[in-house]
Nucleic acid binder design. Structure first.
Length: 416
RNA sequence: GUGAGCGUAGCUCAAUGGUCAGAGCAUUGGACUGUGGCUCCAAGGGCUGGGGGUUCAAGUCCCCUCGCUCACCCCA
């Protein structure tokens, strides 16, 4: 019987795992500098948490969620995204009673039942950040700056920052109507998908890739021209700060985010080094969501980074991240084997990476393995060495050799 | 859910319908009885994704199925 991993899920192991670890530690480091603290929320939640936040008619909710009844018949869903659970936690734990703004980051697996393709999987990982309790554009700009610093820390290049504002509950209905009016006499020219979009979410027509639709929407009203006074002021304030920070960006008025809860600022970071799924990170404001979830009115903003997409880029530009053991003990005979085992324990207790020979292998094959592992030093212990108490060491990089007293190994300069 | 491409050794790939399906790399061992890399030698490793059909003969042609990949939809 041969078992395979399920469609759209993947094992992560060396050498890729080193890239993942590098990304995770960079996130923790950079986000902490901005006052974000880690939060860990469950992978399963009540289904309502997602249907109500993401939107009943979005594709995620309609056909992509892993939803099932638990043994008591409750509807459970594997989280398809991270914002809703964090919002739930924020309210449930009364975190709004802490000084505002409260900032959190998280990292973990998300699940969406989709056909896999490059940069898209059924179980995928996101690093996300959410900040609650401040509506100023300063927070929006801070979030972008943090994302940029994080990406720079990883030496990612050739990334595009796109921003937009999709207004609030006051101005968006007007814009939606203007858009519907504009397309009302063009429906027959739109692709079948856009005909559906026209009914459910006319905003989506704006990012259709069909040529005919692109032509028809050329003179469509732009959301940035339909913002109310407050939203306009917010968007301009946001941009002014980005300019002060020397962050280059483009306004993409056609950028529509897929989740219903977004308000005002939305943004996306894309890379040309990916396939069709080129968004590495994306996010936006969701000033109404906390209140809709039964919390106090609380403006908020967040984003998520697609781990696999990030790793995909890093894999093609990163040098070797693996470092081998500092010491390798090659032994001849049972007594030497035991002796090396005891010395290794002492070194490991000091945090030194030590590897041992196994399985009665010949000295030659032990050295070969040490070389494959990229060990820095090999210590050779046989009967002669045990008798004299002088252990042979060899530097595998420059082939230099020498001897050292068995008791002095923990202080050997090459290991410390 | 829709469309296209591809499935041969751990990996990358060969093999006009015709001997026992091969090579390079990787793995293990040896040449070198206690010194890695380089070189040379050898070994292990395959239900050619699975099933059915055509044929004297199928890795190769046909059908079905499963899987992978890419794209659409949508999204990180």
């Amino acid at each position: 019987m041969k078992y395979n991993a399920l469609k759209g899920v993947h094992d992560i192991f060396p050498p890729d795992i080193y890239i993942w670890q590098k990304v995770e530690s960079a996130a923790e480091e950079v986000f902490s500098a901005y006052g974000f603290q880690e939060i860990r929320v469950p992978i399963i939640e009540a289904t309502d948490i997602f249907t109500r936040s993401i939107g009943e008619t979005t594709d995620i909710v309609e056909k992509e969620m892993y939803t099932f009844p638990d043994k008591a018949g409750r509807s459970i869903t594997l989280r398809p995204e991270g914002t809703a659970p964090v919002v739930r936690s924020y309210i449930e734990n009364h975190l709004y009673n802490q000084p505002s703004p409260q900032k959190f980051f998280y990292s973990g697996a998300m699940f969406r039942y989709e056909r896999p393709q490059k940069g898209r999987f059924r179980q995928f990982y996101q690093i996300g950040a959410e900040a609650f309790g401040a509506s100023e554009p300063k927070l929006d700009a801070e979030i972008i700056a943090m994302l940029k610093l994080f990406l720079e820390r990883l030496e990612l290049k050739e990334l595009n920052f796109e921003i937009n504002s999709i207004g609030c509950e006051k101005c968006r209905p007007d814009y939606k109507k203007a858009l519907s009016d504009f397309f009302s006499n063009k429906i027959s020219g739109l692709c079948p998908d856009c005909n559906r979009r026209y009914i459910h979410n006319p905003l989506r027509i704006l990012d259709c890739k069909v040529d005919a639709c692109i032509k028809l929407r050329k003179d469509a009203p732009q959301v940035t021209n339909h913002l109310c006074g407050d939203c306009k002021e917010h968007f301009e304030g946001f941009q002014a700060l980005l300019k002060l920070l020397n962050i280059s960006y483009v306004i993409n008025p056609n950028m529509v985010r897929g989740l219903d809860y977004y308000t005002r600022t939305t943004f996306e970071v894309t890379s040309e080094h990916l396939g069709s799924q080129k968004a590495v990170a994306a996010g936006g404001r969701y000033d109404r969501l906390v209140e809709e979830f039964g919390g106090p009115p609380t403006p908020a903003i967040g984003f998520a980074i697609g781990m696999e997409r990030l790793v995909e880029i890093l894999r093609n530009q990163n040098s070797e991240l693996y470092t081998g053991p500092k010491a390798f003990f090659a032994t001849i005979g049972a007594k030497a084997d035991t002796e090396s085992f005891l010395i290794a324990e002492k070194l490991r207790a000091k945090g030194i990476n030590v590897e041992l020979g196994y399985g009665n292998a010949s000295l030659k094959s032990q050295l070969r393995r040490a070389d494959k592992l990229k060990a820095a030093y090999v210590f050779i212990i046989g009967d002669d060495e045990l008798k004299s108490g002088r252990i042979k060491w060899k530097n595998l990089k420059d082939s230099s050799q020498g001897e050292i007293g068995i008791e002095e190994i923990p202080d050997f300069k090459g290991l410390n």
